[in-house]
Design a protein around this nucleic acid. Structure first.
Lengths: 241, 241
DNA sequence: AAAAACTTTTTTATCGATAAAAATTCGGGT
DNA sequence: ACCCGAATTTTTATCGATAAAAAAGTTTTT
């Protein structure tokens, strides 16, 4: 019934989003239209449109007559985003627990299962990180999906994306001493038990643990260069052609 | 020295934002590129870019190959937005009270004064509503400005804009039995007294009162006759196909 | 007269070209 | 050698044109 007309700008949006979140484009990096056009084989107009959307989501920044750049990262902003995500997501989880029906439960269980399998494969070094990231996102979206508030969901997605970027910028490896599977399972279980307080608390702790891990990596010297006026040397490798 | 290069897309953004928030463009109304180009005397490309940004903020919606429309309104979404704004703004106010310095206090006092004067003029029927709206926005932004969290501020702006649109769509007249000046003064006073709990509570109540008022208007029949701006189609009905 | 199929009109999405602005290079003067 | 400023290159922002899709209108068929 409902067609899905996909436009070139949508494609560009998807590509850019993926490459920014995955860290293929580094924070602060210049996003030159000319380069992007032959990287994606998409014209300048759709690209500009996609970049405009992303700039409203603060994944890229658009400066006056100076073009687009990937939004910079900083420890301070990591803390800021994390605090906001905690605020939004604990509220959303609580409401979801209160309002969720059976369909929600099964969505959650299904998403958890797929994520759990990906975790498994990662631990055996036979899985892709991209896949894990996608399923992790889907799990967290499933959990809050029953909160009944489109805006909470929208904000959750927004902040999750920002958070994911930080995670992937710094976490190319896995932390060995962390039981992610257990954390996810616990969140789901609290939801199934309809224990809103526990679900919210576990979610908050889950976020906090991630923040600590990323924090450690960021603080340990490997801080990407902060954007300053015109000092944006392309220290990264767009690696095209 | 930071220059401020203003681009045509920025101009279009500003114009569109103003006209959507003020209700000159009605919810659900089609935003045809051709019409907009000679309304603002701005080319199609900058317009498209501005509309893309606004669609990321959910002030306009972009459907597949069907063009842009002003985002629709509904009572359900009003409640949703209001709840989110309450969540964000109470948190931001609390943090601002905890972290605000003297400069913050004076920003707030100054903004309150300007708003209060506008209130005064409105009550005497010698003031413009646009001016009042701007100063109201500036006051609320001043209150949260010291919260120390750029993302909380960003979210506050986002939700405030949505809320403003609802207010202006339905509130062409003033509610006589409401002491807005007193409410604003009370919020500011609680902030100056460094009473975070009271400031948060008063802000929440402030939002809730607004919601009730808008709710009443929205529920009692549809959108009241706004200023004549080539009202093309039915504005408030969720029209499909 | 209603439905279906075709045609015309309108409008969107996109491209290619271009003017303007910023970054870069280059060259003389101190 | 170094700094300042003019000329050059690069890149951005924008326009005008165009192909394609949707909407509106028209005709034909039942």
């Amino acid at each position: 019934m409902d067609e899905t007309p996909v436009t070139l700008a949508d494609l560009a949006d998807g590509n850019l989003r993926r490459d920014i979140l995955s860290g293929a484009f580094k924070p602060g990096e210049k996003l030159s239209i000319a380069l992007l056009t032959n990287r994606y084989a998409i014209g300048a107009s759709p690209l500009r449109e996609a970049l405009s959307r992303l700039s409203a989501e603060h994944l890229v920044v658009l400066e006056g007559k100076r073009g687009f750049t990937v939004a910079p990262v900083s420890v301070a902003e990591l803390d800021d985003i994390s605090a906001c995500r905690r605020l939004i997501e604990t509220e959303a989880v609580s409401q979801a627990v209160a309002a969720g029906d059976e369909a929600w439960e099964s969505r959650m269980v299904a998403a958890f299962h797929k994520l759990d399998r990906a975790e498994e494969r990662i631990q055996q070094d036979t899985g892709s990180l991209d896949e894990w990231e996608q399923r992790n996102r889907e799990f967290h979206e499933a959990v809050v999906s029953a909160c009944g508030s489109p805006w909470l969901i929208r904000l959750q997605k927004l902040l999750y994306a920002q958070h994911e970027r930080y995670r992937r910028v710094s976490l190319t490896f896995r932390e060995p001493d962390r039981d992610l599977r257990g954390e996810h399972r616990a969140i789901m279980q609290a939801c199934l038990d309809r224990d809103a307080a526990a679900a919210a608390r576990l979610s908050a702790e889950h976020i906090d643990r991630t923040v600590l891990a990323v924090h450690a990596v960021l603080a340990a010297g490997n801080v990407p260069p902060r954007r300053t006026r015109s000092s944006t040397r392309t220290a990264s490798l767009p690696n095209r052609r």
